[in-house]
C-alpha cells in the first residue's frame, strides 16, 4: 500500500473543499457590510470586517432571535428527553430478549420511516388543534416525538448490541431484577450511546420545518427555521443578516456534531469504526 497516492489526496482535497465551501462562504458573508454583500465584486475574504450583522440579528425587535433560539432549544431538549425516556427500554428489549413478535415490532419501527410527514401532519394538526396546543411547546414536542422515537429505538438497539451479555448474566446471578440489571448495569455502560442518541434527536427537532410551519403562527413562538425564514423575502432578502443568523445557529451544532461524530457513527453503523 506504499505506492504514491497523491491522486487520493487530490480527490479528497477537492471533495473536502466542496463540502466546506458553502459554510465558509456564509461565514464570510456574515462579516461583510451590506454594501459589500450586495456587490458584484468577488471577495472571498471581507474587505471591511464588521460585526454589525450579528449585533442587528441579536438585538432586532427586542431580541426576538434569542427568543426563537430559546424556543428551538427548549423544544429540541424536551423532544430528546421524552424520546430517550420512551425508547431506551424498548431498544433494550429488542436488543436483548427473544420474544414473540420481535421481528415484527422491529420492522414496525423501520416502517414508520415511510409514513409521509405530509400525511401525518393533517390528523396531527387536527389533534393538536383539538387539544388547544397549536402555538405551544408541547404540541410541537408531541409531533416531533413521532419521528424521534422510532429512530431512537433503532439507534439505541445498535448501542445495546455492543455491550457484552455476560455482564448481565453475572448481575442476574447476583440477584438483581430485570429492571435492576437494566438500570444499574446496562444503562451506565450505554451512557455514551444514550447521549449520542439524545443529541441526534435534539438536532432532528432543531432542524424540523414542516410541523413547525404548520403548528406555529405566533411570531414569538417560532422556532429558528421558521423565524429565520422571515429574513427571506421573495424580492429583497437581507442576506447579510440571514448569514449572521445562520452562523449563530450552525456553529454550536457543528462543534458538538464533530465532537461526538465517532460515537454517532458507531450508533448508525452498528459496527466499530477504526482509524
Amino acid at each position: 500500500m506504499k505506492k504514491s497516492n497523491w491522486w487520493v489526496h487530490l480527490l479528497l482535497i477537492i471533495s473536502s473543499f466542496f463540502a466546506v465551501f458553502p459554510v465558509l462562504w456564509i461565514l464570510s458573508t456574515s462579516f461583510k457590510p451590506k454594501s459589500e454583500v450586495f456587490s458584484t465584486e468577488l471577495h472571498f475574504i471581507p474587505e471591511t470586517f464588521t460585526l454589525e450583522n450579528y449585533i442587528h440579528v441579536l438585538t432586532r425587535a427586542d431580541g426576538v432571535f434569542l427568543q426563537w433560539m430559546g424556543n428551538s432549544f427548549l423544544i429540541a431538549l424536551l423532544t430528546a428527553l421524552i424520546s430517550l425516556f420512551l425508547s431506551t427500554t424498548a431498544a433494550y428489549a429488542i436488543s436483548r430478549f427473544k420474544f414473540k413478535g420481535r421481528g415484527a415490532i422491529n420492522y414496525l419501527f423501520f416502517l414508520t420511516q415511510m409514513f409521509p410527514g405530509a400525511l401525518l401532519v393533517i390528523p396531527l394538526y387536527k389533534i393538536i388543534n383539538g387539544l388547544g396546543l397549536l402555538n405551544s411547546y408541547f404540541g410541537l414536542v408531541l409531533a416531533y416525538a413521532t419521528v424521534a422515537i422510532p429512530f431512537c429505538v433503532m439507534m439505541m438497539k445498535n448501542f445495546f448490541d455492543t455491550i457484552p451479555y455476560e455482564l448481565e448474566e453475572a448481575a442476574r446471578v447476583d440477584g438483581l431484577s430485570h429492571f435492576g440489571t437494566f438500570y444499574r448495569i446496562v444503562l451506565p455502560l450505554a451512557l455514551p450511546g444514550v447521549a449520542v442518541t439524545g443529541f441526534y434527536s435534539f438536532i432532528t427537532a432543531w432542524n424540523e420545518f414542516l410541523f413547525a410551519l404548520t403548528f406555529l403562527s405566533e411570531q414569538k413562538m417560532y422556532t429558528l427555521p421558521i423565524g429565520l425564514q422571515q429574513f427571506v423575502n421573495q424580492f429583497n432578502t437581507d442576506w447579510h443578516y440571514l448569514a449572521a443568523g445562520a452562523i449563530i445557529v450552525t456553529v454550536p451544532v457543528l462543534i458538538i456534531f464533530l465532537w461526538v461524530q465517532r460515537y454517532l457513527i458507531a450508533g448508525l453503523t452498528s459496527g466499530g469504526t477504526k482509524g
Binding site: I203, T250, L254
Partner: peptide, 8 residues
Amino acid sequence: LIVPWAVP
C-alpha cells in the same frame, strides 16, 4: 467531509 451532514 461530514460537515454538510452536521449543518442544519
